[in-house]
Design a protein around this nucleic acid. Sequence first.
DNA 1: CATAAAAAATACTAGTTGGTATGTTTTAGG
DNA 2: CCTAAAACATACCAACTAGTATTTTTTATG
Lengths: 195, 195
Amino acid sequence: MKKAEETKQIILDKAYELIYSNGYHATSIDDIIHASRLTKGAFYYHFKNKEEMALAMLNDVLFPYLEETMVQPLNNALSPADDLYGMLSYLLLDDPYFEPAFGCPLGNLIQELAPTNGSLNSALLTMTNAWEEAIVKCVNHGKKTGLLKVETKAKQVAYFIMSGYWGARLLGKIHASDAPYKVYLKEVKQYLQSI
Amino acid sequence: MKKAEETKQIILDKAYELIYSNGYHATSIDDIIHASRLTKGAFYYHFKNKEEMALAMLNDVLFPYLEETMVQPLNNALSPADDLYGMLSYLLLDDPYFEPAFGCPLGNLIQELAPTNGSLNSALLTMTNAWEEAIVKCVNHGKKTGLLKVETKAKQVAYFIMSGYWGARLLGKIHASDAPYKVYLKEVKQYLQSI
DNA sequence: CATAAAAAATACTAGTTGGTATGTTTTAGG
DNA sequence: CCTAAAACATACCAACTAGTATTTTTTATG
């Protein structure tokens, strides 16, 4: 009962690593069980198929971490501009689990799986909506406290921030460097002062 | 001599369509020849392997079109803000070959192929750099004519615009709609007036 | 129209994929 | 300790992958 949960967690952790760096389709079940030092029997004892494993990986590994790094920092309610910049800056430059060459794990999966439209896709949408909502709340709070202009549209800002972040991840990927992040962050800082 | 070029073009066109909508790895050679109503013999007569075919697809199909829609509109030299907005707006809302559910063909391939680092990757980087350069030139021209602030940093603006566009494509993909594009465009319009 | 080369079709291979069926070991509870 | 279920291993399968070898058809040209 206890050991089983451990190996299940090992599979999910290794699956996350491999899928983050290589993509969902490019990561085979053989790859995952080999990295986990396990066999097919173990894998299919714990998961019905690849898709259900990936869903568990999202809910148990990726989403809790994204909640921690993308959503919670926006509940600080200090200055919206600082909170938003801090979230972006941490994600792009300081986060120890993300690498420029591998992009954003959430963005990668959306890119790869969105057209297929399975159960994974709706999970990705839910996480995306949670992030959007956190930004919207952050901006609206700033408008109430007078730190942001009243005419600022929260949803527009949210989409603008999210888009910029995900696109910056692409630039980092094609350049295999965090240099684009720094350039992007300078401009987003100016933008945040203008709203 | 003439017929051969025709079938070659058919393969490249179908390959582009399939890869744009399904991704590079998810598109098999069998898929391509089936859509082209051809066979393996024809495919491997014209191309050495899948990668070289994809490279030809980029150079003969995708890049010329991107040059036309992403780069040339910025050579208008009217108003940089209007030129940049016009390029983004056309790409996101009016372009007949791009669909929200399938994202940006260039962005998709960067996302999928950047970690592998083959010959395709350097081609994608070259195209990306051409786009960046066009935006930089556009901004710098605007600074000279006084339409943009002198303190505006061209490269920062370029990365900001490119990031926003690619990220908006992701939002469109996860929502399978062009609604996020419209929200993004409203905010980018305001941003362009602030530089 | 004959013919050689070009263009394309057919048949095949070796390796990989997700998934299954059937074993063997390990573990918890009486 | 015994035993049944849980946890995992091994062996296998059909479908699919990129790519090759060989054969057939089509085309241009003397």
